Amino acid sequence: MPPASTWQPLEEVRAYAVSGSTGIDLYRSIGERGPAAGVGQAVAVTTFKLTWTRDYRPQPDGACVLAVAKPRLIITYTLPRAPKNLTSAVAESWQRFIDGVEKHERVHGTQIIDMVRGIETFSRGLKEENDPKCTKVRQTLQARLKQFSDERVAQSRAFDQVELTEGGAVHRLILALANGP
C-alpha cells in the first residue's frame, strides 16, 4: 500500500447572537436562542460533515482491497456571540465564559478527529478474500463504521456528563456568568 495521504480537518466557527447587559440576561438569551441539542437548547454545539474518497480494488486472486480511504472532515462549532457594548466587568465575565465553552467544544472536535483517524486506519488496506465485486469488504467496513460512531457518541456523552453536571467545568462557567455582573 502507498502511504496514507495527509489530511487536516476544516474547522469553522458559527455564531448566534445573544442579547443582554448582565451575565444572567446573557444566559437567559442563550436559553432562548441557543442551538437545539437533544431534548432542549444548548449553549454551544459541535457538528461535523464527513465524506470519503475510497478506492476499492478487485485483485487478480478474487480478493478486494480498499486501497484508498481519504476523509474530508468539516467540523463546525456553534457558539454564542454577545453584544459589543457590554460593560468592562460583564465583558470580562463573558470572555472567561466563552473561552471555557469553546475549550469544551474543541474537545468534542478532537474526539471527532480521533474517530476519523481510527476509521482511516481501519479502512486503508482492508481486504476480503473471494470478493471480486468488493461487496464483502464494503459490508465489513460498514459494520465497523457503526461501532466507531457509537464509540464516539458514548465518549462525547461521558465527557458532557462530567462537564455539565453540578461542579463540572461548564456548569461552573454557567454559574459564574449567571451570578456575575
Rank of each mutant, 00 (worst) to 15 (best):
A154V: 09
V153A: 13
G118D: 09
V170Y: 03
L141Y: 06
G167F: 00
L126N: 01
N179P: 05
S156G: 13
L141W: 00
A158K: 12
K136V: 12
T110R: 15
I112A: 05
S149A: 13
R172M: 09
L175R: 14
T165C: 04
L126P: 00
E128M: 12
F148P: 04
A178D: 11
E105M: 02
L164D: 05
I119Q: 14
A176L: 09
R157H: 14
R152Q: 11
G168A: 06
R138T: 11
L164C: 04
K146Y: 01
Q111T: 14
L141S: 05
E163Y: 01
H171T: 11
D131H: 00
A143K: 14
K133D: 13
E120P: 00
R172Q: 14
F122M: 10
R124A: 10
G168R: 01
V137H: 05
A169N: 10
F159W: 05
Q111E: 15
N130Y: 06
E151N: 11
Q139T: 10
L177E: 02
I113D: 13
E163I: 09
G118V: 08
P132S: 05
N130M: 11
V153F: 03
K133Y: 11
G118Y: 03
P132R: 03
A158C: 00
D160H: 06
A143W: 10
N179S: 14
G180R: 02
R106M: 11
V107P: 04
Q161C: 08
Q155I: 01
N179M: 12
A154M: 09
E163C: 09
R124G: 08
E105C: 06
F122Q: 08
L126A: 06
E105T: 08
R106H: 11
K136D: 12
E163A: 15
K133V: 12
S149L: 11
A154P: 02
H108I: 05
A176Y: 04
I112T: 14
L126I: 01
D131R: 05
G168M: 02
L173G: 02
E129L: 13
T110N: 15
S149N: 13
A169D: 14
I112F: 04
Q161E: 15
L141D: 02
Q142R: 12
N179F: 09
P132C: 05
Q155R: 14
K146F: 01
V153W: 06
R106N: 11
E166Q: 15
G125Q: 07
V107H: 06
Q139F: 09
R144C: 00
I119Y: 00
V153Q: 12
R152H: 08
V137M: 01
R157T: 15
R144K: 11
D131N: 01
